[in-house]
Amino acid sequence: MSSYFAQDDVSLPGLAAYYKVASDEEREHAIKFINYQIKRGGKVQIECIRAPPTNNWENALKSLEVSLALEKRKSDSHLTKYLEDEFLEEQVQAIKELGDYVTQIKRAGPQGIGRIFI
């Protein structure tokens, strides 16, 4: 998503920066999960991550709605304590932030007046 919004024909650098930070954060989470698995004596098996369903996010609102849906994913009950300790507050903040952005863009209307990421 970051690279899409950084393209010269889209040019929403604030949104590109937001998604870059989010991507870096998710990578840090993956490393924490790897370290957690190793601590528990498990074997880390890296598999391919599916590409997003599209490379054309159409507009800021659509991308934020997709991001919000991904942030609301369900958790694994076996990792509940670990997830709560490591990620819950951050997850709640991400859901709030994305929800606010969706609301603000909807409020701005189809012309995008007052976009928050410019």
Rank of each mutant, 00 (worst) to 15 (best):
M1P: 05
S3T: 09
S3G: 06
Q7A: 14
Q7F: 03
Q7Y: 01
D8P: 00
D8G: 00
D8W: 11
D8Y: 04
D9T: 05
V10M: 06
L12R: 14
L12Y: 12
L12W: 10
L12S: 12
P13K: 15
P13W: 14
L15C: 04
L15P: 03
A16H: 07
A16V: 02
A16P: 05
Y18C: 02
Y18K: 11
K20F: 08
V21L: 14
A22Q: 14
A22N: 09
A22T: 07
D24S: 11
D24Y: 01
E25M: 09
E26Y: 05
E26N: 02
R27Q: 12
E28L: 12
E28C: 07
H29Q: 05
H29Y: 03
K32T: 08
F33Q: 04
F33P: 00
I34L: 12
Q37H: 13
I38P: 08
I38Y: 07
K39E: 15
K39G: 09
R40M: 13
R40D: 10
G41C: 07
G41W: 08
G41T: 01
G42D: 07
G42S: 06
K43C: 04
K43Q: 11
Q45S: 12
Q45L: 13
I46R: 14
I46Y: 06
E47K: 15
I49G: 13
R50W: 11
A51P: 11
A51W: 07
A51H: 12
T54M: 04
N55A: 14
N56W: 09
N56Q: 08
N56R: 12
N59H: 06
N59M: 00
A60K: 01
A60F: 03
A60D: 14
A60M: 06
L61G: 06
L61Q: 10
L61N: 08
L61Y: 03
L64V: 06
E65L: 02
E65M: 00
S67Q: 10
L68Y: 07
A69F: 03
L70I: 01
L70P: 06
L70T: 07
K72M: 10
K74Y: 01
D76F: 04
D76A: 04
D76Q: 08
S77Q: 11
L79A: 08
T80H: 10
Y82G: 02
L83A: 10
L83C: 10
E84H: 09
D85Y: 03
E86P: 05
F87A: 05
L88K: 15
L88V: 08
E89R: 11
V92S: 11
A94D: 04
I95W: 05
I95H: 03
E97Q: 15
G99L: 10
G99I: 09
Y101K: 10
V102Y: 09
V102H: 02
V102A: 09
V102W: 01
Q104H: 13
K106R: 15
K106L: 04
K106E: 13
R107K: 15
A108C: 11
A108D: 09
Q111D: 15
G112W: 01
I113M: 06
I113A: 12
I113S: 09
R115V: 05
I116Y: 02
I116M: 05
I118T: 13
I118W: 13
